[in-house]
Design a protein around this nucleic acid. Structure first.
Lengths: 220, 220
DNA sequence: GTTATAATCACCCTTTAGGGTGATACTTTT
DNA sequence: AAAAGTATCACCCTAAAGGGTGATTATAAC
């Protein structure tokens, strides 16, 4: 019954570290067993203590030396069963998305209350994921930008001209040059000319790569 | 000073509707001015009351007649300044993503407490977005799947075979059949055979469409 | 033990795509 | 007025892609 949730923490800021540790100490179901000031020192600790397998690892994103972000995959390889919860004051979406893609299970802003950190830990331990509302906002804006098929996208490309984008969109739809030409009331040759320029601008050599760039949202 | 947050609600379940309305009634900064049981009746109400412009509209996803999801874009066109907060008991990710892409600002599970609904309203009103943790979990799993370039993707497609996926991935990378054949140590003819089957399975006729399906995450 | 599916390969053919070069007309910028 | 950029079109050529049919082998399912 009384199996506590074992939590580790990597955070260079001593004040935050001690506050979080102290707060967690008040709870009955969560226990902080080890704290490190850097990814490097955590890895060292893992090597020495082969039996160290925390359920959850709180990981700061902005660490001296190896950043928490860079550390995720390495830590994950050493502690495959440990869920990583990122802690951060920087809520830039690039970093968040990287963390998500690297396998972090949660993302909690240090700006939120200590209680929400504890809540996040419990949720992750029970198989869930947690996002503080501030983070949710970032994810939202990302999703709306990259995942909207039609109208929502009103931000035109800065690299391609309007006409080029128009043609690229039809390329993505799988239309052959002939059909694109018909749609736009221009000659197939002109379509070809546009596409050649698109490829040069995007530094690609074929449809597939152009489509990938387009759909991966690498064009803004 | 005392400008209340005006909230509307579309929800067919009378019990939920009344409970939420009652709870919101207790708060000082939020006011529920109108409730509808369907998107249709809301649209009717909007037509009659041209000055009806709630700050926030709580919208159920599972409505009789037009679903909340289908209603988002229509409502958005009538009430462009209103932020839509989806309410739902079904937390399927497809629906969530559709809502996000259609312009909903928040997504709150009805399973969560009434207080969290109120919290969500306040957050959205202040320009943020809100996601309840249950929803966050779904978004996470989606992001990890669709946005991870390498290893993280371990869940294989159910529609395509492993080999077919392997080939499709190389197609997405823009490799010609010849190169794919070399990579996999098989003949170009075999590559062609695989691709023909992929197209049949996906009901597409060319690379572009297949790549689009792949990158849009329509394959699971 | 037959049926079904997946993976492999081959040959037929047509359509589509891509790379190079060059030209005209219009607009914007300098 | 000259330069730069965009959109339009043409002709050269080769490479790549796509559709159809048919076949072999191994493995999995019934």
């Amino acid at each position: 019954m009384s199996n506590k949730i074992i939590v580790g923490m990597v955070e260079d800021n001593k004040v935050i570290r001690e506050n979080v540790a102290k707060y967690i100490g008040f709870s009955e179901d969560v226990e902080m067993t080890h704290q490190a000031g850097s990814v490097e020192s955590l890895l060292e600790y893992i090597d020495v203590h082969q039996d160290y397998k925390p359920h959850i690892l709180l990981l700061d994103i902005g660490l001296p030396g190896m950043s928490g972000l860079e550390g995720i995959s390495i830590i994950k390889s050493k502690l495959p069963d440990t869920d990583i919860v990122m802690l951060t004051t920087f809520e830039e979406e690039e970093k968040i998305l990287n963390a998500l893609c690297s396998g972090a299970s949660a993302y909690i802003s240090k700006k939120t209350s200590l209680k929400s950190i504890l809540d996040g830990i419990r949720i992750v331990y029970n198989g869930g994921s947690y996002m503080s509302p501030e983070i949710a906002r970032e994810i939202f804006s990302y999703l709306v930008r990259s995942n909207s098929p039609q109208e929502v996208v009103n931000q035109k490309s800065t690299v391609l001209t309007d006409r080029q984008n128009e043609i690229l969109e039809k390329l993505v739809e799988g239309k052959p040059y002939r059909k694109i030409a018909e749609d736009l009331f221009i000659s197939v040759e002109t379509v070809r000319t546009h596409i050649k320029k698109i490829y040069k601008t995007l530094h690609v050599n074929n449809k597939a790569e152009a489509i990938s760039m387009y759909l991966k949202g690498e064009l803004k």
